[in-house]
Design a protein around this nucleic acid. Structure first.
Lengths: 358, 358
DNA sequence: TTGTAAGCGTTATCAT
DNA sequence: ATGATAACGCTTACAA
């Protein structure tokens, strides 16, 4: 990729001015300018009632003129908290966690908290490093999404008095996490599969998610539960391994076509997988939903914009974030103890990729 | 949306232990436990050569056992920097800025910097508040994407010695920003339009972006320049106002169909708009690209997954972030002065939504 | 109503 | 090789 750099490095008068001004003003500077003590300035700026109205406004004006900005680090040193929460996501460029973070941010903002975001890149090592960084920055709470090692954080930070909330984390061990918010994967998968069954489909198939992930296991379990519910036998051969990415859906199609009992409907681990399958079906000349009905999971923004638009399970992403942040707020206020586990239900959204079996 | 809360509030032995342990250990605590002074601990933990090897390792072990975590705030107070940069985006759930932030984060991480993310929600007021918050947190540099009031930040933070890098910001005034990284919108738009012309199209149209945004103006300018380049007259009636969202593309179609000289190819402000138009065309029974060729701008991840896949201008999003962070790094090292403006070029990606006019 | 002083957890400069 | 001590910017008793 070509790029051009225009760099004017000659000494610029304005920049020199800037260099001269390169001073961080502290309350002491303001105190000196106002002819008062620095504690009076501190009180004035925090609008304490124990300060004369006239000096108060004079100090406020002075602070503005001198470009004062309070040092959050110094403040938190004495106050003992930072009004900041840390959030760990696997990757920022994931539309799913993006919406979750929006929910967290909205709730945090409305309560005067700010958010530090860190990426784990789905590596336990970097996840730990991220949490450790957040701890060093003395965040008041930590929310970790899709954690691989959530229990560890809860152990370490919990001991330091920092609540850790796990969001959609993998609880493969079976032991419930101390604080967590998650969506009911099994229930959602069951909803989607039951929808396909209700449309008259009997030869179903499933493209699974990444092996070893608990959502993969839960969604598969929901799929099986729905089949069992109507007495359709479960055939392991009709579950294709996947990754959660579009390629997995694309690669699944030939396998479906080669099956003796070719499926008429497929429930995919997530929308990305479903979109890949959709694309492959389109290339192969199959008509969706007539030749093949497809259902996804997540309801990512683009589920509406593919053709045909995608039937899916809408995860309450924004609300997931809200709930996690609310739990953090509660925990920080020191009220709650014990264990609390909020589980939200997904919602079936029927679009064009599924239809009654004609 | 239904949700169930399981809350076990009974006094839990393990949690009580946690409460007892609720102590933030400082170097002084370690010093006491090790029977040395706190300055020795500080030296030992920063692996200073002026400390005995045996005490060094003893202190390290102690720190680990006691769950020590250095206080970044206190450290930055004396060091004068935080090894943290602030990034302001309009919204986190935007796939475009998400990839830019990935580029920033990757470069920051590899240089030992961490990132604080803040959202402006495209409101100047909140943008200013976000930057002010970052300043309070004493970030070493600030990167603002799509800024509305970039010059203001450069004035205020520049005076405090904090470099501000503007990324794809609106420079409507015409005056170049002091430090900025951006993509050449006009050049990209010209590329896309020339592609349509080269395919043999002569009756073109454009769905514009949000009014008052400089990218909208620049992309329109590129569109016009391409037309002028081959002597095709520009007709203002063939520019439809838009918003940058899919609805704008959908609403544009009927207007195109109503035109006397119905366009055979449309260049859209961005991919979201193009996808809306694609969808409307599909619903109206038009074949893309035969009845209508469509080109977008941005190359969002889903441009590949719509049918037909979208011809577009790929913005070097990740690189945009990398360059911005690199500039920040340079600026923080105190090397550069003056003005520097990096401009990156987009790249034409031809997919299925455009084809030679038969 | 205001000033003085102590202290938050670090690092850095002295001595020793 | 280690220990006192000051300093960073701020809040908050305690005094006046």
């Amino acid at each position: 990729m070509r790029h051009e750099v225009y760099s004017i490095l000659h000494t610029c008068a304005r920049w020199q001015l800037v260099r001269v001004n390169n001073v961080k003003t502290s309350i002491k500077d303001i105190a000196r300018a106002a002819g008062v003590s620095h504690s009076t300035v501190s009180r004035a700026l925090s609008d304490s009632p124990l300060v004369n109205e006239v000096t108060r406004s004079r100090i406020h004006r002075l602070a503005l003129e001198m470009g004062y900005s309070p040092d959050a680090g110094a403040r938190s040193l004495v106050r003992g908290h930072t009004c900041t929460v840390g959030v760990v996501v696997t990757t920022i460029a994931d539309p799913f966690s993006a919406e979750v973070v929006e929910g967290i941010e909205a709730t945090a903002y409305s309560h005067g908290y700010s958010v530090i975001l860190a990426a784990s890149h789905d590596e336990p090592e970097r996840e730990i490093a991220a949490v450790e960084m957040l701890r060093s920055k003395r965040v008041d709470a930590v929310i970790v999404t899709s954690s691989r090692v959530g229990a560890l954080h809860q152990e370490r930070l919990g001991a330091a008095g920092v609540p850790v909330i796990l969001l959609n984390s993998h609880s493969l061990g079976g032991a419930p996490h101390t604080f967590s918010v998650r969506v009911d994967d099994q229930h959602g998968a069951r909803l989607a599969t039951e929808h396909l069954l209700m449309l008259g489909h009997r030869r179903l198939a499933h493209v699974a998610g990444p092996a070893g992930h608990s959502p993969s296991a839960d969604r598969l379990a929901g799929y099986r539960a729905a089949l069992a519910g109507v007495g359709v036998p479960f055939d392991p051969a009709q579950v294709i391994a996947g990754t959660g990415r579009p390629a997995a859906g694309e690669q699944a199609l030939p396998q479906f076509l080669a099956m003796a009992a070719r499926p008429t409907a497929v429930f995919c681990y997530n929308d990305m997988t479903a979109i890949g399958l959709l694309r492959a079906a389109h290339s192969a000349g199959l008509i969706v939903p007539d030749d093949l009905a497809i259902a996804g999971f997540d309801d990512i923004p683009f589920a509406t914009y593919v053709s045909p638009s995608l039937t899916t399970i809408a995860q309450p992403k924004f609300e997931l974030g809200q709930q996690a942040m609310s739990m953090a707020l509660t925990l920080m206020s020191g009220v709650a103890e014990g264990v609390s586990d909020v589980v939200l239900q997904g919602r079936l959204v029927v679009r064009e990729s599924t239809r009654i079996r004609g």
